[in-house]
Design a protein around this nucleic acid. Structure first.
Lengths: 413, 413
DNA sequence: GTGATTTTGTTTCGGACTAGAACATAATGC
DNA sequence: GCATTATGTTCTAGTCCGAAACAAAATCAC
């Protein structure tokens, strides 16, 4: 909850220098966040009294805080539904529908933009399929910037854009915002902000992030501030390669430099085939989309659904491809589960489409290889198959900034 | 001696539904924690003015908070060293030396108890070597209880025991405090608290935890509240088997059920030898102590140092054992590093003793198999080889409770 | 219908706590 | 000895929360 102080022994006469954010002297910001989060988390729009009960505050305090959030647009007073109960009817509160964020995504197969509001609803979106493998970053990002500008132009008057994010299928350096390497796109050392920001209004600066991390966030929270079905899980994003992310305590673990989640290069068999990453026997060589299709004897562009159909229909090559992928996933994921003690694996991308076929064998492998399985068997699930989940996750991350510190957003505008 | 029982936090008037944490009405508890943590973190004992500068509070506020902590014994005013600088001499503050915690450890090779104070100094300790493999839990824990009672009896008058912990080499269920399985001891389904607490004074109830998790804590924080050299690392504890722990953002990740860190059963080669866990090709089969010694052609009880000497001396079997272990560690750790993006691996136990020999090959393997290695090469280090690190970690964890919420400890004498 | 009941939301007051400024204290430097 | 400087303390004003009283708006009982 609290800011950790910079422990510079050098005494500073003037107020804290840049870098050390002023420490809130009052409990207000934290309590505003608590109220907003409570409303975001609640199943149905809660009244001020509900908020008070849920947080342990008095009704007076909860109401005062809620009033401020309503005045600032971060909460809305919504239409009361006749409850039939006795007593003065409540005024239900919902997260502000005029506060939105922009999520963008550039992937090997599409450009996408999506605007989400604080309630997690899609305000507007645009998905442009297209083969971007080997594309030139500058014009591609320019197109994405125009797409984003269009989306923002469509927003109704009075809408506040709290932030923006950009999901990219590669390694993003969190500190500098540089996309170091995106193998599927063929991009290296790109600073998307430089190419995007000029096309966007009002100094909006999309924060780049790894697509799998952001897609995992859509599972970790179903709407801003609202926890999803699992607090701890491993997310696997099956693309041409295999990315992933680990969610612990509801937080996406991005690693100390934001490079976490390279599940595709966990070693399944040290004597296995060489991988383009320089290692051998990487998971990607067994369960990556191209690898699975090749084993099944299908051309590279085949849709995963077609593979699933053949395997379900008894095609031996397709069946072998799925079984091989399940075995490799079992070996790689068991290692992760042994290390992190996470009870759930969520499969996205092409792995999500194959989840029904993969699950039995995969759960069997995990049951055998995960040490704690005799006390709690790991479960395998398919991610909800929404297109361009990375864009949604990017918007959710921007909105999380609002939910985590609403006080910052009350002063402005 | 005065033992303070573990008190529950002030109960909230309205018992809020589970999921909502008790919310302090005032900023006081957080600010007390901030001041205490600042003193714990500081290199040299800081003055009240230093604390104010470091935290951004005014001197008045910092002094008031510090005064309360001093009055409560959580801070000490220590002897001023003549600074030679102009101005009124400062009164340096240090964490309270009369607040201590007890750390216990039961391992295959020893029983140990250690009392640490808030400054992280060892107040007293006792280590009793002995072969506990296949021992009966009840008398063994009774011995440990007596050992602990002796240690507590030696403490000077006025010492407050803030808590206790117990490091165990196995899977501990965090919710119930049950040791589910400790293969090296041969124990299953033991509740250490039942056997220990009756021998301890004043309702002191040692919290059990996994030994590797607690040993990792000694690397993560060098003293209560003082971060160690690395914020993010993987700790490997080489015992008869191989345990481990992951530290992210300075926090030891215990997993959603406290079963994390079973690095020994990460799969290195799915076609490898069967492991007693039911899986195949587990890391333990290549780099566990017995496995390494067997490969080197040495009897089971041989000290790792002897193996290291032979390998350094050119003994081919010893050399092969070390190289095999390095390769297996490289495969397994590369997976973990790819998933978590952690820059450092710390080797403890027998792996720590072999660290000098393992490092070159291991770092080479990691450099090849870790995807982000071309931007930042993973480093391998040996853990400081203190005996019974788990006991130290158990005490540190108990003391961390004090540092994290000092207000709870100020009310009671 | 009318009044009692019940629940929500608001107002008022007192108390806890912090920031800021002035003040007291104790050293060094000239 | 006196100015200078840094630390620590005291005092006051202001913020914010909790508690309790109050106002508002519905249902229930008759």
């Amino acid at each position: 909850m609290h800011v950790t102080a910079n422990l510079n022994p050098v005494s500073v006469p003037a107020p804290s220098p840049e870098g050390t954010r002023a420490r809130p002297a009052t409990p207000r910001p934290a309590n505003l966040a608590l109220v907003l989060r409570t409303v975001c988390t609640a199943g149905a729009p809660p009244s001020r009294a509900d908020v008070a009960a849920a947080t342990g505050m008095t009704r007076a305090t909860a109401a005062r805080l809620a009033d401020d959030l309503v005045a600032g647009g971060l909460l809305d007073e919504v239409e009361a539904t006749p409850s039939g109960r006795r007593g003065r009817p409540a005024t239900p509160l919902a997260p502000g529908s005029r506060v939105v964020a922009l999520g963008l995504q550039a992937d090997a197969g599409l450009l996408a933009g999506r605007v989400l509001d604080l309630r997690g609803r899609v305000v507007s979106e645009r998905v442009e399929p297209g083969d971007l493998r080997g594309s030139d970053p500058a014009p591609t990002l320019a197109r994405l910037g125009d797409l984003a500008a269009d989306l923002l132009g469509e927003l109704p008057d009075g809408t506040r854009v709290a932030g923006a994010g950009l999901a990219l299928p590669g390694i993003v350096d969190g500190a500098t915002g540089v996309l170091l390497r995106a193998p599927n796109l063929g991009w290296s050392d790109v600073r998307p902000a430089d190419l995007l920001a000029p096309r966007l209004p009002g100094g909006l600066d999309p924060v780049p992030g790894n697509e799998a991390d952001l897609a995992a966030r859509t599972v970790a929270e179903t709407a801003p501030g609202r926890p999803g079905p699992h607090r701890d899980f491993v997310y696997l994003s099956g693309q041409i390669g295999i990315g992933g992310a680990t969610v612990l305590d509801g937080r996406v673990m991005c690693g100390s430099s934001g490079w976490a989640g390279e599940m595709g290069h966990v070693c399944v068999d040290p004597d296995g085939p060489a991988c383009r990453c320089g290692s051998t026997g990487c998971l990607e060589q067994y369960a990556g989309r191209d690898a699975v299709l090749a084993t099944a004897g299908l051309p590279r562009g085949t849709a995963p659904g077609e593979l699933a159909r053949r395997a379900a229909g008894g095609d031996p090559a397709a069946r072998a491809a799925v079984d091989g992928a399940a075995r490799a996933l079992g070996v790689a994921l068991a290692g992760v589960l042994n290390v992190l003690d996470v009870p759930v694996v969520v499969l996205g991308g092409h792995l999500g489409e194959l989840a029904g076929l993969l699950r039995p064998a995969l759960e069997e492998h995990l049951g055998r290889r995960v040490l704690s399985a005799r006390w709690r068997r790991p479960r395998v699930e398919a991610a909800p198959g929404a297109p361009a989940a990375g864009a949604t996750g990017a918007a959710l991350r921007a909105l999380a900034d609002v939910v985590d510190d609403p006080a910052r957003w009350l002063g402005t505008h």
